Structures are given as structure tokens and as C-alpha cells.
Amino acid sequence: MQRNQNKRKQRLILLSFLASIGLSVLKFTAYYLTDSNAILSDALESIINVIASGFAFYSIYLAAQPKDQNHPYGHGKIEFFSAGFEGALIIIASLYIIYEAILRLIHPEPIHNLGWGSSIILFTILVNGGIGYLLVKEGKKVNSKALSADGQHLLTDVISSVVLILSVMLIWLTDWNWIDSVASLLFGVFLIYNGSRLVNNSVSLLMDATDPELLDRTVGLLSDKKQNHWIDIHNLRVQQYGADLHIDCHLTLPNYWDLGQVHGAIHDFENILKEANVAETEVFVHADPCLPQCCGFCRVENCPIRQTPFLKDIHWTRELLVKNEKLYNGAEK
């Protein structure tokens, strides 16, 4: 199943790469016909699409490689680097676009064949929108940051191209050529914002920053599948390496259980987490023995060592489970 997912990701990013090459040619053709600085901005940004899609293709290929002695957690983090690389390229392109827009404001030039140019850009909007939507959808499905980042970049390109079409229509109606440079300038600022978001997100993931959505999903799963003998979970950590997940936590179990029972409970616990995730999931569980303070929220029936009766169940939340302390501390508050 994992191999099929990797092949599908590679096919999708290859589609994006080939489409980016074709659309880049079309956009430069539109610029050649119109001499529009705004269309040139869109064409220059499409070069970034080509480079970024090519690097994303390589990153997905590398992320699919098996673990080795030098990379015991796999190669998945290359996908985060790919997203950051794409963001950096967008920022570089946007600075050049802003520079060209300022020059055109100072030294305006006539624009031609806006009808043909607009038709070509409209076609690229449809193609980019379809591929971008597909990449984002599949990226979320298979937990691939490289796919999602490339798809979001294409959808951003769609938004900017729509604004571009509107500006061209205004020029057509008003004959105000300065709108072309202003649209290009705004386009450059918009790209800086989106490129910065990609870079910041990439850096956070490379530094193993907590993903609140991913953590909440894991906590929700554990709450829904909660077993009576899962007395307590704490020090929960969920990390993403490309599409792969690594989960570790401390699980409190009855202290009178033998090693075989503990091993079986942990095995079942791990399987619940693995079966709920499409991506390959690696789980490490540290088993803790229960303490007398746990009795008030322990749901184990017919416990031979219970010292106090069951009082209340603790609602598991992200804030509680990530702490490196047993839940009875939360129950006392």
C-alpha cells in the first residue's frame, strides 16, 4: 500500500512538472504578444513552478527510499525542505517582479494584443486550478507536504492570474497602461507573503514543531478507542517525517499485570494508532505501572489492589496528554 502511494505521488508531481513547463511556454507567448509587465510577472513566476515541481519530484522520490543506517527515521524530511525551497524561490522571483514593475511605472511602454494574451492566461488558469486542487487533495490524503505545497503554489498562481485578467480588462476598458505595472507590483507583494508562509512552515516542520491539528487528531482517536486498562497516557509526542508519522508516549497499565499482558496491551495500542493512519506510522510506548493516586479515575473493574473507589473519568485533551506527568495531577486540580 505504501509503495502504491509513493508511485501515485510521483505520478502526480510529474504531471505538475510537465504541465508547468507547457504553461510557462504559453505565458511567455502571451507576454511576447502583449508586452504586458503583469503577464511577464506571471510568466516569471511560472518558471518557479517548473523548478519547484522538479525539486518536489526528486524530494518525493528520495522520501520514498527505505530507512538506512545513516537515516534511521527515513528520508521523509526532504519534503519539508522542498516546501521551504519552493517558498524561497517564490520570494526571489517576487523581488524581481517588484523591481520590473517599478521600472515600468517610471518608464511606461505600450501594450498590445490584450485579447489574445488574456485568452492564453485564462487557459492556464483552468489547467493550474485543476492540477492544484488535485495535488492539495491528494497531499492531505497521503500526508505529503511536498504535494500540498506544490498544489497550494499552483492555486496561488490561479488567484494571481485571475487578478491579472481583471487588470488586463481594466486596461482594455480605460486605456490606462499604468494599471499593468501596479497589478504587477501588487502581484509581487502577494507572492512575498505566500513565499514567506511556505518558508516559515517548512522551518517549523524541520525543527519538529508541534502540529496542533495532527496532535488533536491523535488525541481524539485515543479518546474514542479508550480501553479500561489504559489508565493514563502522558508525554505524548507526534512527529511527522515527510508522510510518515512517529508517535511516542507513556502508557500507564495495572501494576499487577505480568510482562505478557503488558506486551499484548502495548501491541494492541500500537495497532490502533497504525490502522487509523494512511501513512506509515511508527509507535514507541513506554509502559508505566499504576500508582494509588490513579484509583480515582481508573476504570479497571475487579481490581485486586484498588485503594479508593472510582470517582470520575478524565477527559483527555491535547494539553493534558502532552505533559510529562500522570493524569492524577490534572484530576486534583
Score class of each variant (00 low, 15 high):
residue 295 C to W: 07
residue 7 K to R: 14
residue 20 S to N: 14
residue 45 E to M: 00
residue 90 I to D: 00
residue 275 E to F: 07
residue 278 V to Y: 09
residue 305 I to N: 09
residue 49 N to V: 06
residue 187 F to E: 09
residue 212 P to I: 09
residue 67 K to S: 09
residue 179 I to P: 01
residue 265 A to W: 03
residue 5 Q to E: 11
residue 29 T to K: 02
residue 69 Q to V: 12
residue 106 I to Q: 09
residue 315 H to G: 06
residue 99 Y to L: 13
residue 227 Q to L: 00
residue 30 A to K: 00
residue 276 A to H: 11
residue 31 Y to S: 10
residue 77 K to F: 00
residue 202 S to T: 11
residue 130 G to Y: 10
residue 148 S to L: 03
residue 206 L to G: 09
residue 299 R to Y: 03
residue 187 F to I: 12
residue 138 E to S: 05
residue 308 T to P: 13
residue 110 P to K: 15
residue 190 F to M: 15
residue 26 L to V: 05
residue 65 Q to L: 15
residue 293 Q to I: 07
residue 110 P to F: 11
residue 234 H to S: 02
residue 330 G to I: 06
residue 292 P to E: 13
residue 282 E to K: 14
residue 101 A to Y: 04
residue 182 V to H: 10
residue 164 L to H: 03
residue 148 S to R: 03
residue 313 D to P: 10
residue 35 D to A: 13
residue 302 N to T: 13
residue 222 L to N: 04
residue 1 M to W: 12
residue 178 W to L: 10
residue 241 Y to F: 09
residue 306 R to D: 13
residue 291 L to D: 05
residue 301 E to Y: 02
residue 281 T to H: 07
residue 123 F to I: 07
residue 31 Y to P: 09
residue 293 Q to N: 14
residue 287 A to P: 04
residue 11 R to I: 08
residue 219 V to H: 01
residue 185 L to M: 12
residue 259 L to T: 12
residue 65 Q to H: 11
residue 106 I to G: 02
residue 229 H to R: 01
residue 162 V to K: 14
residue 16 S to Q: 00
residue 40 L to I: 11
residue 310 F to Y: 15
residue 254 P to T: 13
residue 197 R to L: 10
residue 148 S to W: 00
residue 289 P to C: 12
residue 75 H to N: 01
residue 26 L to R: 00
residue 176 W to Q: 07
residue 254 P to G: 14
residue 171 I to K: 03
residue 38 A to Q: 05
residue 273 L to E: 08
residue 257 W to P: 04
residue 15 L to Q: 06
residue 34 T to G: 03
residue 24 S to W: 04
residue 247 I to M: 09
residue 217 R to Y: 03
residue 33 L to K: 04
residue 165 I to A: 00
residue 221 L to Q: 02
residue 99 Y to V: 12
residue 273 L to A: 09
residue 97 I to T: 08
residue 272 I to L: 11
residue 77 K to T: 04
residue 161 S to N: 14
residue 266 I to R: 14
residue 91 I to V: 14
residue 208 D to C: 08
residue 188 G to C: 05
residue 57 F to L: 09
residue 164 L to P: 02
residue 35 D to P: 04
residue 21 I to G: 12
